Amino acid sequence: MVRRGFVFLRLFISVIALSVVIPTVHPTPVGAFTARNLMYGSQGYDVDELQSRLRLLGYYWGDIDGDFGWKTYWAVRTFQYNFGMKVTGEVDMATKLKLVKATPNWHYQGSSGGNSSASTAESSSASGGSTGGSTTSSTAASAGASANFPASVNGLDQSDLNLMAHVVYGEARGESFEGEVAIAAVILNRLHSDKFPNTVPGIVYSPGAFSCVDDGQVNLTPDATAKKAVMEAVDGWDPTHGALFYFNPAKTSNAFMWSRPEIITIGNHIFTD
């Protein structure tokens, strides 16, 4: 009888111990970003989040497909450059934290297949960096501009043509039509040169390449004239005669730009070799 009571007591103590050691586990929400670093070739829903946050800020123009390709790579580099970070094209925790802080109203909605932004919320760049200009409705602007371009022409797709139009409008609105064509021609001349990246996004988002990227005016919606100027350049009109660089002499004291051999002046821009 005593032994049975002892066994019962040990069993009772064991049950109490288990109830203390093994608490009830409740699942906790997990953010879309994971702890892993993201880089070219990464895939997954955390890349979806990266792309949609970058698109919300106006840095990314491609599909939100969870595939870290070259467009995502160059968008990351530009974000890092504009926010004063080390430019690597890789997304470490510091870059994620900066990106999250810059997009406080972003909400994860899964992959959009490139048809819409993963967030309808507006974001302000409150983290100390700035895209400048207008960051509102960049996805709608992208879609609207692309609709006026052919699916592809001379090896360039709608995304390339649209991005060129944004640069033309950001850099040369107010210039003559020839001056706008000239900006598009410089992008194409760089595309055909072995001294520059071999993609339009790579050229446009190279750190310091275009002032409109640095100050955010690349996010403004291009008008019909800018789009027409891009098509004229793609069709072969090059008012710059092969120029790879240009600058506004009233706005720059950059010794490198002034040292380049001058080819032609069009409006407020000097085009150089």
Rank of each mutant, 00 (worst) to 15 (best):
I64T: 07
T72M: 04
F12H: 10
V25E: 10
A141W: 13
S119V: 13
Y81G: 01
I16A: 09
A126G: 15
V2W: 09
V76Y: 11
D215C: 09
T34V: 12
S138H: 08
D160K: 04
F196M: 05
V91Q: 01
N268R: 14
T265A: 09
H166C: 13
L161D: 08
F210C: 01
Y45H: 14
T135F: 01
L56D: 04
T135R: 01
R53T: 08
R190H: 12
R4P: 03
A243I: 05
Y81L: 03
T221S: 15
F256D: 09
T24F: 15
A94M: 03
C212M: 08
S176V: 14
Y81N: 08
G133R: 10
M39D: 07
T95E: 05
G132A: 11
D194A: 10
N82A: 04
E232D: 08
N268Y: 12
G216H: 05
S124I: 07
P239C: 14
A229K: 06
P29D: 10
F247R: 07
T88E: 05
F33A: 02
L57E: 00
A233G: 08
A209D: 03
D235V: 04
E262N: 14
S159L: 14
A126I: 15
W70S: 14
E175T: 08
K71M: 08
A75G: 03
V30E: 01
G170D: 00
K71W: 03
P239W: 13
E232R: 10
Y246H: 13
E178C: 05
M39H: 10
A182V: 03
Q217T: 12
V87H: 08
E90A: 14
G89L: 04
R53E: 04
S111P: 15
L11R: 10
R4M: 02
G132F: 12
N148Q: 15
V2E: 14
N162Y: 10
L191F: 07
A32G: 06
P249E: 13
G114Q: 10
A35V: 04
N189L: 11
G5K: 12
A35N: 06
G41L: 05
D238K: 02
D48G: 13
K98M: 08
F210M: 03
R10I: 14
N189I: 08
S112K: 07
F149V: 15
H107D: 07
K98G: 03
I22L: 15
Y81P: 01
Y108P: 02
Y40S: 11
V100Q: 01
D215H: 12
V7N: 06
Y45E: 12
I16C: 07
Q51C: 00
T240S: 05
F245N: 06
T103F: 00
